[in-house]
Design a protein around this nucleic acid. Structure first.
Length: 297
DNA sequence: TCTGGAATAT
DNA sequence: GATATTCCAG
């Protein structure tokens, strides 16, 4: 899955580092930030002079998974092959490979779960009970913060998270008539490691003492002060809640103004080929020198 | 050459 | 553990 973030999140500082490696902790906290910022999950990111790439990993949200299951059920188990599932799902950006991979897992899960269900039709683990209270991931794409950000005319990223009739913590393996599947404890919505489950879509809240300069530049600090610490609890209905964009802005601006401090965003570059292909797809014919010929991986 | 599916890598 | 990537048979 590919999408862009507004250029404001790509600083000149970043652009001087066509190849950026980051420690796992940084990348992890970057994940946490993205959760706050967009409500979407991805794992690989790269920053270029004018924009910020996030590529390649599909977030199989409950909503997306439901589409997948609906397609599989519609086709029937025997006819459910990646290309046809993809056709039925009608999800822009999703590839046959993505679907094939998910289908593989889906089939493995069915093989693994169904025999168990004969013995225990209504598993009610404590985890499941807790997950039932997880809020929805927010429906939230990046607003155009600045008019000069480099973004395609239309959204190029899928925005999952339409409210469903099911708790967001529940992955629905199987057709709607089979609640036992959606309660399979081995297949569930997972929060980020180190983050409380109810931090999904957690808006970035200001620190209690009101000074943004107290935000550490390293992301573990950012994470602990703004994301993981849910003492800044969000409203009950997180779907309708918008993050404190101005707070995000300030954090980013501070990162720009203090380039000597560690970067707040963990960046892991994609392959040069995928970047060039994406640029081409976006109709960008002029390849910035940072990208063209840069050592990207 | 393309596709699906299993195995393997990340 | 989840997803992507690779490999191979059809």
């Amino acid at each position: 899955m590919t999408y862009f973030l507004p250029s404001m999140y790509c600083t000149p500082l970043y652009s001087s580092y066509p190849t950026i490696s980051c420690p796992p902790d940084t990348l992890k906290s970057f994940e946490a930030q993205k959760t706050c910022l967009s409500g979407s999950m991805v794992t690989t990111a790269c920053c270029f002079p004018t924009f910020f790439f996030v590529i390649n990993e599909v977030d199989w949200t409950p909503e997306l998974h439901k589409k997948f299951v609906a397609a599989v059920e519609h086709l029937g188990v025997d006819q459910a092959i990646p290309s046809r599932i993809l056709e039925l799902m009608k999800v822009e950006g999703l590839t046959r490979h993505n679907v094939a991979s998910h289908l593989q897992k889906y089939r493995m899960h069915k093989r693994h779960i169904l025999p168990k269900e004969n013995d225990r039709r209504w598993p009610q683990s404590r985890d499941h009970m807790r997950r039932s209270y997880y809020p929805h991931k927010p429906i939230m794409a990046f607003p155009p913060y600045h008019s000069n950000h480099v973004l395609p005319a239309g959204p190029v990223y899928p925005v999952w998270g339409a409210p469903s009739n099911h708790p967001a913590g529940v992955q629905m393996w199987g057709p709607p008539g089979y609640p036992l599947w959606q309660q399979a404890e081995s297949w569930h919505w997972k929060p980020y490691p180190g983050m409380p489950a109810d931090a999904w879509g957690c808006p970035v809240m200001p620190p209690p003492h009101g000074s943004y300069s107290s935000y550490p530049q390293n992301t573990s600090g950012f994470q602990s002060s703004a994301v993981v610490d849910n003492s800044y609890s969000m409203p009950q209905n997180s779907v309708d809640f918008h993050p404190a964009e101005e707070v995000i802005d300030k954090v980013v601006k501070e990162a720009i103004s203090k380039p000597w401090l560690p970067l707040p965003l963990g960046l892991k570059p994609p392959s040069a080929d995928s970047v060039l292909a994406e640029l081409s797809r976006q109709g960008i014919s002029t390849i910035p020198p940072h990208i063209n010929g840069a050592h990207l991986c």
